[in-house]
């Protein structure tokens, strides 16, 4: 394994916080960790990371490479981001939770989740983090459906998303227009909770329900997303049929569980 020349963005919690305070207006006591999930995204990842460095200086960037077999890890190292490499493809949920465990060890005050494929603009990530700080919510979801424009997925997927949104309202009393959005920001309470318990598979709708039922405040902010920058969606073929069924069932079971505290 090659050694990384790691001149990192805020590796030590204190340093990260100090930089964040120096470069951004409002004083942050704890670092903001940008959690970038990547599975074989060597094409799009450099763009994502340089955009993050430009738009959001002072954030600690961590790339979780979910068993990638291409140059994803090398891209992360070159950019100076921290790199968490899972030894095999463990799935979105496991990868995300690894990021939360890491963020916790840094003493992060905010975690913001972005995809490594370029769908999530860094400027929008910055906006939802700002919204998290302003509204003092525990979770802020970047929603594609609260204002027109941008990339909004296909018709079939939108129908599925409406169905999941309906289930979240029934099971958890949550009003979330875009429960499958991967672009989300989490405050300390959410970080602590998610590093303990985490749903399986494609976890966004379930974790929203989990957090909502745990009594955390989940807010939604309109964002504009882009179409992916290369690579392929991990949801294709049969999983597009399997996914809504699995998630609906998972939401039902989640609603039957005891509330997490």
């Amino acid at each position: 394994m090659g050694h990384a020349s790691e001149r990192t963005v805020g590796r030590e919690p204190a340093e990260g916080a100090a930089r964040a305070a120096a470069r951004r207006g409002p004083v942050l006591s704890r670092p903001v960790v940008a959690l970038v999930l990547a599975y074989n995204e060597e094409e799009a990842l450099p763009g994502v990371l340089s955009e993050l460095a430009r738009e959001c200086p002072g954030w600690s960037v961590v790339v979780v490479s979910d068993g990638s077999t291409d140059g994803t890890g090398a891209c992360a190292r070159r950019s100076g981001a921290a790199l968490l490499q899972l030894p095999f493809n463990a799935g979105v949920a496991a990868a995300e939770q690894t990021g939360f465990l890491y963020a916790r060890s840094l003493g992060a005050g905010v975690v913001v989740r972005l995809d490594g494929d370029g769908q999530h603009p860094a400027a929008e990530a910055r906006r939802i983090v700002a919204a998290l700080e302003e509204t003092e919510a525990d979770v802020v979801i970047g929603s594609r459906f609260l204002r027109p424009g941008g990339f909004r997925s296909t018709f079939a997927r939108r129908a599925g998303i409406r169905w999941l949104s309906f289930l979240l309202r029934v099971f958890g009393g949550l009003r979330i227009a875009d429960p499958t959005s991967g672009l989300r920001a989490f405050g300390e309470r959410a970080i602590a909770l998610l590093s303990r318990v985490y749903p399986h598979g494609y976890p966004e709708p379930e974790s929203n329900l989990l957090l909502g039922r745990a009594g955390l405040r989940v807010e939604e902010v309109p964002v504009t997303m882009r179409a992916r920058d290369g690579g392929r969606s991990s949801l294709r073929g049969w999983s597009t049929v399997y996914y809504p069924v699995k998630v609906s069932f998972a939401l039902l079971v989640e609603a039957l569980r005891e509330r997490v505290r």
């Binding site: 968490l84 490499q85 899972l86 095999f88 463990a90 939770q97 890491y102």
Partner: peptide, 9 residues
């Protein structure tokens, strides 16, 4: 797997 990733880092 998660622990391996964290320890490696």
């Amino acid at each position: 797997a998660q622990d391996v990733a964290l320890l490696r880092e």
